[in-house]
Amino acid sequence: MSWGLEGPVSTHVPVLRIGDVLLVTLQGELHDKAAEQLQQDIGEAVAGSSAGAVVIDVSGVEIVDSFLGRVFAEIAANAKLLAAETVVAGMRPAVAITLVELGLTLPGLRTALDVQEALRMLAQPSTPLSPGQGRQENA
């Protein structure tokens, strides 16, 4: 039987550094081990480089279950301990709807429409906003 998938090619997801920001681009199917490995890699990268922010591009991700959701939340929590912000960018509508139905709203996480928007957001000196507070520029 052909499944069109030949098992995990690599358990490492590349972590790119752009200036002060670490950029991680996730694609397609992410195995549990790869996700855990990623969590560790990002933790080390943030600690080793004193990066100010982590952007996780999930626009290529078709499925986020509670396991991967927990990984995102923990990456953000770990980064925060090291004074770095985490932004999840480009989540697909179907994935967002599913996460909400699942009961996973990831309240501690910042989100952006895409990577560009995430970088723009991070470039602005702003306090992490929660819905309802609004941004304070031009006030």
Partner: peptide, 29 residues
Amino acid sequence: TDLAWVRQHVRQAAAEVGFGLVEQTKLIT
């Protein structure tokens, strides 16, 4: 690795049945 096979299989089966993208995503999840 089997978990990935299961997701892959459910994706194919759901597409075959004719689920929309959102329903497919929910079912695979």
